[in-house]
Design a protein around this nucleic acid. Sequence first.
DNA 1: TCGCTGAATGAAAGCGCTTGCAGCGAGCCT
DNA 2: AGGCTCGCTGCAAGCGCTTTCATTCAGCGA
Lengths: 354, 354
Amino acid sequence: MASVRSPRLADVARAAGVSLATASRALADPALVRERTRKGVLDAAAMLGYVPHGAARALATRRSRTIGAVFPPVDNPIFAGATHALAQHLAVAGYTLLLASHDYDYDAELAATRALIERGADGMVLVGLVHRPETLATLARAGIPYELTWSLDCTGRHHCVGLSHRSASIRITQHLLDLGHREIAVIAGDTAHNDRARERLDGVRDALAARGIRLPARRVVEVGFSVARGRAAFAALLERAPGFTAVIGGNDPLAIGALLECRARGIAVPDAMSIVGFDDIELAGELAPGLTTIRVPSAEIGREAGRRLLARLAGRSVPKVKTMPAPLIVRGTTGPPPHAGAKPAPARRRPAVV
Amino acid sequence: MASVRSPRLADVARAAGVSLATASRALADPALVRERTRKGVLDAAAMLGYVPHGAARALATRRSRTIGAVFPPVDNPIFAGATHALAQHLAVAGYTLLLASHDYDYDAELAATRALIERGADGMVLVGLVHRPETLATLARAGIPYELTWSLDCTGRHHCVGLSHRSASIRITQHLLDLGHREIAVIAGDTAHNDRARERLDGVRDALAARGIRLPARRVVEVGFSVARGRAAFAALLERAPGFTAVIGGNDPLAIGALLECRARGIAVPDAMSIVGFDDIELAGELAPGLTTIRVPSAEIGREAGRRLLARLAGRSVPKVKTMPAPLIVRGTTGPPPHAGAKPAPARRRPAVV
DNA sequence: TCGCTGAATGAAAGCGCTTGCAGCGAGCCT
DNA sequence: AGGCTCGCTGCAAGCGCTTTCATTCAGCGA
């Protein structure tokens, strides 16, 4: 209310009858001052409603107790979960999250990274492997530890926590192949601006190639991630290149879009069409039939990135790469193709972790 | 790479052959120095890869160019959208977002608020009207402008941007009443820890009371927000107090859960059961039938909160309360109750903004 | 030619905190 | 009892930047 300057540490020290230095120590580390002194300072601080001045502290210690994160659209539920988990984990350790987001735009990412460095972020978390070269270079030059998340960096140059999207994608494609599918369509994400989307698409190609199957270009659509776009893309595939018995979504919303479009058109899932997604968002398990997908432990990734960063800041060293599990979750949207004399495994109605 | 101390402004000044003060001015305001001088400084800065030290600047200017936000679980898609929009809007103005989240825990919110104040947030955005008294008091004492979001504060004491959840809830309940429903059940959010959930439930009661209808306690279930819990709650309602013809979800995921449970049980929607939600998440419009709901413009709320805060920081004044539109979106999940000789309005298949 | 004006620049005082170093007693050993 | 160690405290020097106030100097009118 009143514009009485908020109390500084000097005020606390005076009120407690000790020097500035002692007050500082009392607040920082109980072991540094006598118990009585400490109590006096704490009381004075409480009485005055003292709030430490972070900038001053940061200037003096060269530590801001802040971690920066630059994420693609935080409104993608999967990033939202990671953000939340990360923020929570940091809070426990007395750290705070500086968050910036961008729309899959690497220049914006670079700008955001600079802004966070300038704000004094002690560590940074980025998403994915692909960035403007300056982004990582700036971080390295500034001596700021960073973690790349979601993907795995096989060059061994960067700390990272995530999973191999390509091999997960291979796994789920094999699941379809094992069921007997040969004609497969893909609704991919934006492979030009998103390395996860690219890896996932490559994984599909790899798995097919391993069985001598080619993925024709007309069976692939690239769109931004959303249910509506997944629906539209599925419709487009049906127009353009009908005859496929399974469709692979670049992520769950895309797959759910395809599922809804099937329902709207009366296409039976999985009897006439199998559908798989990627991510395992909450809804995937609630739909009927449930969506077969790859579980990406997004919250765990966020938490783990935070944990590793804090460990490194504390001087402990951590393995360069942390691989997170990404199990295939078989639910009801996958089954043998129509007229299949193919594989034994029937579509299971009950979720099962494979 | 090398641990050469990163360059300070003094280094830039030296390289440019000017004083520290001039270098500072050249970077801060072009109008303050001669064009030639300015260019020299800019070049030197670029050459050295100079990055300003935010903490030092914050200490000197008493401004951190940072806005704090304390949100309930950021992984709720509706908050995620607001976070993203807010971060984006701030970035354009050279501000950065300091984000903290909590799980509907007011003490955690207070702690987070303190942490953000300590980090020097120039402004704050909080969600909802209910907080620990210290939370707002601390903010006021520190002279930090804040915006309460989502809800509207009718006391006129606080700046806020949001909507009246109660009157929106009344509107959507009236929609059901107008269709002829009299037996109504509610799957509410956690009213003890969430004032939006409480207001929404109160709105239902108000609307019913206005037509002389009571809402029996057994027709109300309170659960956390999620599709799975919505499903379970709907099932519980059917056991406990069958006979209702419409169910009101405290938010869209809850309503979608009810919808899925109906589908699983073969209950026709809307012929045998009408369902409404609240929020209008993306999926609501994609389902078939589409979910009738209230559209809460969450991204706009985030953006608007940012806009207002920046304006206030710039010394401009803004109206204390900003009301956001929250239209009723009528889609396919609502229709007349079975055997209704009631109202004219048939369930419309096409979305319509009312 | 001299003094005046104003634009451009520089010197230096902080902003609020941490921390190395020094001082000061009290306790302990011999 | 004297000297030494050690725990606690205070002094003061920054951390890197902004900003006030003073200074310099070019340009101009008289």
